[in-house]
């Protein structure tokens, strides 16, 4: 039973990130090789910003952020245990901070390369993401470096075995909101101009739209959403360690899920994410059995890297459009034309 909750939780978290990547890569054509950065920013919003606000508000003294975050966690957990509403308030506040900071960093870091070709864009975004990852991993003053910081449990009133069920429900609820929001904007004029930009930037320019502004908007929205996933993940694991926001987990795997499901198709991305998450969870669960079965003389994580790398290559080679192909957009006038065409062809058949 617990495995369903684990799958639901990871499906929710990864789906939010890969949907955000789908907006940027699948719709707008921005190869954001720095997706992990936005997720890390979400974690920093909770572990670095919200924690400091709480420490300041409650006047907690500590030698450093690592120490103080541990003390404030005990204090806040006590309050939430008696007053669930404060937990809800903290949850909503974290998500809002993460969204705002994520949007700002997304817009800021695409600025230097927003005018450039896609390979420069990909390289720069990857470089920025790697450098920020490295700094947060080594500098203990941001989110505790490799020691990490503690985070209050927003579900402290519901502690125990069942916590994961409630948390995965929250994550799925946020996922539903994100999905509806993305379906709305990708089926709007804005979503259509993003697709047009992906196909041909010059046409978009000829119609008087600024490609740079469009890219910045898409990156801001995408990063805000991915950052929310980072905040949710940190709130779930009640601590933040920079090393869990590496490029493989939060840039490469989301790309794999998007391409597996079908870039430019939100439903397809959900299917791709579910497939990936189920495979990954079973791999992680049975890694010791797998190691003994195959007589592997090394850790299963290396096998996981090789497997998913090869899977990505096979997808690129044999099915670059993914499981579900991108569908044409049915706007109101188009739907009317199609309906009319269908009815006329039916009447002809009669």
């Amino acid at each position: 039973m617990e495995i369903i909750a684990v799958i639901a939780l990871w499906f929710g978290l990864y789906a939010i990130v890969s949907l955000s990547l789908n907006l940027e890569y699948g719709y707008a054509g921005i190869p954001n090789f720095g997706r992990a950065l936005a997720v890390l920013i979400g974690a920093i919003s909770v572990g670095g910003i919200l924690n400091r606000i709480l420490i300041f508000y409650f006047g907690v003294k500590g030698v450093n952020i690592i120490d103080a975050s541990g003390k404030v966690k005990t204090l806040v957990n006590g309050i939430i245990a008696n007053d669930p509403l404060f937990g809800l308030f903290l949850l909503v506040t974290s998500l809002i901070i993460a969204g705002v900071v994520g949007a700002l960093t997304g817009a800021l870091f695409i600025l230097p390369s927003a005018k450039l070709r896609e390979d420069y864009l990909a390289i720069t975004l990857l470089a920025i993401s790697e450098v920020v990852f490295m700094i947060s991993n080594y500098d203990v003053d941001i989110i505790g470096g490799y020691y990490g910081v503690s985070i209050p449990d927003v579900l402290a009133f519901y502690a125990g075995e069942e916590r994961i069920y409630l948390f995965s429900l929250i994550v799925l609820f946020i996922l539903a909101l994100v999905y509806i929001f993305l379906e709305k904007i990708t089926n709007s004029p804005f979503g259509r101009i993003l697709r047009a930009m992906r196909e041909n930037e010059d046409v978009v320019k000829a119609f008087g739209k600024d490609v740079m502004i469009l890219r910045i908007k898409a990156a801001a929205i995408g990063s805000a959403i991915a950052s929310i996933a980072g905040a949710l993940y940190s709130l779930y694991s009640v601590n933040v360690i920079a090393s869990s926001f590496a490029r493989v987990e939060w840039t490469f795997y989301p790309f794999l899920m998007v391409l597996l499901g079908g870039a430019g198709n939100n439903k397809g991305v959900l299917a791709g994410t579910l497939t990936f998450v189920v495979v990954k969870i079973f791999l992680t669960m049975y890694k010791h059995e797998l190691r003994e079965l195959l007589h592997l003389p090394f850790e299963a994580v290396w096998l996981e890297y090789m497997m998913f790398g090869i899977l990505m290559y096979l997808v690129l080679l044999y099915k670059p459009e993914g499981i579900f192909k991108e569908k044409p957009i049915f706007t109101k006038p188009l739907r009317y034309v199609v309906a009319k065409f269908r009815s006329s062809s039916e009447s002809e058949e009669i």
């Binding site: 490469f252 090394f298 850790e299 290396w302 090789m306 998913f308 690129l316």
Partner: peptide
């Protein structure tokens, strides 16, 4: 006739495979 981005993602995938290979090799 894969696009430039597809080729880039392929080298990213290659990087991951190499990392897995080197990691596994170091333990062997």
């Amino acid at each position: 006739e894969a696009s430039g981005v597809i080729l880039m993602i392929a080298t990213l995938a290659l990087d991951l495979v190499l990392l897995g290979f080197i990691g596994a090799y170091s333990e062997i």
